[in-house]
Design a protein around this nucleic acid. Structure first.
Length: 371
DNA sequence: AAAGACTTCAACCGCGCACAG
DNA sequence: TCTGTGCGCGGTTGAAGTCTT
């Protein structure tokens, strides 16, 4: 009797994940964790199988997952560890914080294997067969370590190897082990172009908030330019608002944020909408002022500032998908604004919406443009 | 400019292992 | 000890992107 499939294939969606599905998954896991992958899709309202959710989370959505090209150091480490462990990708990944086994496996097959070949001219066939043998025979790799093959990749110390067996290597931190009150940096970037990812640098390292945040050492992806997605402050899963310093100056809104899910999320935050604040702003020659009940729809306000006020109505009550909005220019559009009043609390403080998915700049909560 | 070849990588699949009952 | 269930791992696939002709 064969093994039962993990789920009813006819009932689940397959293929690439949409930003909407990502949003659902991340939001759910941030709030409730992932104790039971099998039950998670149903609870989160996803038409996916649990396995698919797990894979998506681990390989892509997890906050500490590091994206972008592998450094030379990382590549060296992979080659060295591969010589020791063979195709034990998960074990190799445990040595590379923020990197997933899948990613390492891919980079091995696409780049590193080729790099290794030119080095092994006369003995290339033996080297190759040795490596490939690890695919079908897990023990083959360990024997290759002990057989004295003059392979620099085998130079990992015995103690290190043993240590790995005990799983004491750096482990990616489970999101639900993160206290909600602690600063959480998110590498999620729905709506951000691949080009931005490619040019990404570690703004994280420059952020003083991160020096006290151990998890931030994982060097997650950050866009080169600080943006609305670059929020580094504390994220409270139980409260979708974060209190930040009163924003003044330019609010840069990347066009990539013109995403259906983002705007829906912004509009969904009742507590934010009910805050009685007023904003005076000007953009593209037009002056707008917004005050409390007169403009308690944050998404509409921002769309107005972006000159996209008609977008929602044009699409049967929904905002246009990002594919249509995020063109022609992908640059940030600055919105000049100044808050003038806030009835409650410290006058220098201001509430901004937060989410596990959509984030805001660190420091004042907004990216302040040049004077 | 178009077509085909090649590369990349996200996602899928099946199996083995661990664990609870 | 046996059996069922869920998770994690490693191999593979295929769509999309890039390069070459």
């Amino acid at each position: 009797m064969g093994r039962q499939p993990c789920c009813d294939k006819s009932q689940v969606k397959r293929g690439p994940w949409s930003s909407s599905e990502d949003l659902k998954l991340v939001t759910f896991i941030q709030r409730y964790g992932h104790d039971n992958w099998r039950a998670l899709p149903k609870q989160a309202g996803l038409q996916r199988c649990g396995k698919s959710c797990r894979l998506r989370w681990i390989n892509y959505l997890r906050p500490d997952v590091k994206r972008g090209n592998f450094t030379e150091e990382e590549e060296d480490t992979i080659m060295r560890l591969h010589g020791t462990f063979g195709n034990k990708w998960a074990k190799i990944a445990s040595h590379l914080p923020g990197r997933t086994d899948n990613e390492i496996k891919n980079v091995w097959h696409t780049c590193l294997k080729k790099k290794l070949l030119p080095k092994t001219t006369s003995g290339s066939s033996a080297e190759e067969s040795n490596q490939e043998s690890t695919i079908t025979s897990p023990t083959a790799s360990s024997s290759s370590v002990s057989n004295g093959t003059p392979n620099t990749a085998n130079s990992i110390s015995a103690s290190e190897s043993t240590e790995q067996e005990g799983q004491t290597a750096i482990k990616p931190q489970s999101p639900m082990q993160v206290e909600p009150e602690k600063p959480v940096s998110m590498g999620i970037d729905v709506g951000i172009t691949e080009a931005m990812k490619e040019s990404s640098t570690s703004i994280l390292a420059q952020n003083p908030l991160n020096s006290s945040n151990p998890s931030s050492e994982l060097n997650v992806y950050r866009p080169e330019e600080p943006s609305l997605l670059d929020y580094m402050g504390p994220y409270d899963v139980n409260n979708t608002l974060a209190e930040v310093e009163r924003p003044e100056g330019e609010l840069h809104i990347p066009s990539q944020l013109a995403d259906d899910d983002f705007w829906s999320f912004m509009d969904s935050i009742e507590s934010f909408k009910s805050n009685n604040y007023s904003i005076e702003s000007s953009n593209l020659g037009g002056d707008h002022s917004a005050e409390g009940a007169d403009n308690n729809n944050w998404a509409d306000f921002l769309l107005t500032e972006l000159g996209l006020e008609g977008a929602k109505e044009q699409n049967q009550g929904h905002f246009l998908p990002k594919e249509e909005l995020a063109q022609p220019a992908m640059d940030s559009k600055p919105v000049q604004f100044e808050t003038t009043a806030k009835p409650e609390g410290d006058g220098n403080m201001f509430f901004i919406p937060t989410s596990p998915f959509w984030s805001w700049p660190h420091n004042s909560g907004f990216f302040l443009g040049e004077e």
